[in-house]
């Protein structure tokens, strides 16, 4: 599903990723961990083409990123759901419209859209906040809206950048349960986190990054 071969990424004189090689199969749920600045976010950004690799080969589904045309980027992104570290919610739109945006971009019809949005909001326990605006919600609630938006269109891949960064342990456990359920339906999931508690005893693969190097791979 996802394959990195000797991938490097530099920002000016700083190296964000150095010769990283790994592969994630269809339906896997994999954690990427490492301290702040180790390259976790960069690695995810390379998958949804928010960044371009300087060296190496990246393959996502049937696309080879190095050869991906600009016009194909929206199509690639519509196959991926992303939980952004900074949520990227639209403050002027209701919770409903924020989640619905992922479907509207995909051209989903209104009737189907409504049912799917409410289902996704129910999954993250925010059905009752559908008419609220993001600034009126807590950080944890905003994070769950971002999660609902990432899963609502049932993408083939979900990427989550610190998805439990702003939430209490109970909510965090709830979010992880949601990921597990979605993964059980066959969705490939990559979660970048520095919180070891999140993958402890999950039995999932963990890729460990340090200063841009992939320093190890283990089963949690």
């Amino acid at each position: 599903m996802i394959r990195f071969q000797d991938v490097s990424k530099h920002y000016d004189s700083q190296t964000a990723l150095r010769k990283v090689t790994f592969a994630v199969g269809r339906g896997e749920m994999v954690f990427i961990t490492g301290p702040s600045g180790s390259g976790k976010s960069t690695l995810l950004k390379l998958i949804y083409r928010a960044e371009k690799a300087d060296e190496g080969i990246i393959q996502v589904m049937d696309w080879t990123m190095n050869a991906l045309k600009d016009s194909d980027v929206p199509l690639l992104r519509r196959h991926i759901g992303v939980v952004f570290q900074d949520f990227r919610l639209l403050d002027n739109c209701t919770v409903f419209d924020n989640v619905a945006l992922a479907l509207r971009i995909r051209g989903t019809q209104d009737r189907e859209l409504k049912a799917k949005v409410f289902e996704a909001l129910k999954l993250v326990n925010l059905r009752h906040k559908a008419d609220s605006f993001p600034p009126a919600l807590s950080g944890g609630e905003q994070q769950r809206i971002a999660l609902a938006r990432a899963i609502v269109a049932e993408p083939l891949i979900i990427l989550a950048d610190e998805p439990t960064g702003n939430v209490d342990p109970d909510t965090s456990a709830g979010i992880m349960r949601t990921f597990k359920d979605i993964n059980a339906r066959g969705t490939t999931i990559l979660i970048a986190t520095h919180n070891r508690e999140l993958f402890r005893n999950t039995g999932r693969r963990v890729l460990r990054l340090d200063f841009g190097n992939l320093v190890g791979e283990e089963a949690a």
């Binding site: 992104r77 639209l90 992922a102």
Partner: peptide
């Protein structure tokens, strides 16, 4: 700009 960037990251086409 940020809103538009979000649209792009979610896979919106130029027309959208």
């Amino acid at each position: 700009e940020r809103e538009i960037e979000t649209f792009k990251l979610l896979g919106a086409t130029k027309r959208f």
